[in-house]
């Protein structure tokens, strides 16, 4: 199982909690101090996106965050249960949906700008963002 797992109701006020926990576990796992701000921001973006997707579709299920410490790397998985969250596929064209999609893409843009190793998957049963950082100082990318 993951080193630490979090489940929280899809409410904006809990995103901060997820950020704080993720940063604390990342620090313990040996992620470089200089990168912790990026970890905090990236996990916040992923959770914000998940909360938005759940609220948009009216899902009561919690957002899941898994913090996984492995040899020489640290991964964070943020999972949502929103269906049709397939990137680039629009299900309808009204203005609210488009605004939602724009914010969604902004969050993803920030994540992909921040994190070198990121995988975004989505399908009928939900989506998952997996972000990985090295924990061995020798392989840290230049900041």
């Amino acid at each position: 199982m993951a080193t630490v797992e979090l489940r929280f109701s899809a409410l904006p006020e809990h995103v901060r909690t997820a950020r704080l926990v993720a940063a604390a576990v990342a620090r313990r796992a040996g992620v470089d101090e200089a990168v912790l701000d990026e970890v905090r921001l990236a996990v916040g973006e992923a959770c914000t996106r998940a909360v938005g997707l759940h609220q948009h579709v009216g899902i009561t299920a919690p957002v899941k965050v898994a913090l996984i410490e492995e040899e020489k790397q640290f991964s964070i998985e943020v999972g949502d249960e929103a269906p049709h969250a397939v990137p680039g596929v629009k299900t309808s064209g009204d203005a609210a949906d488009e605004l939602e999609a724009e914010e969604d893409e902004m969050g993803l843009a920030v994540i992909s700008g921040l994190v070198d190793d990121v995988e975004v998957t989505a399908g009928e049963s939900g989506g998952l963002i997996r972000m990985t950082w090295p924990t061995a100082p020798a392989v840290l990318p230049p900041v």
């Binding site: 950020r19 905090r40 921001l41 916040g44 973006e45 914000t48 914010e103 902004m106 969050g107 843009a109 920030v110």
Partner: peptide
Amino acid sequence: DFLDSTGLG
């Protein structure tokens, strides 16, 4: 102390 994409928006 912290700014994310929602704040940018």
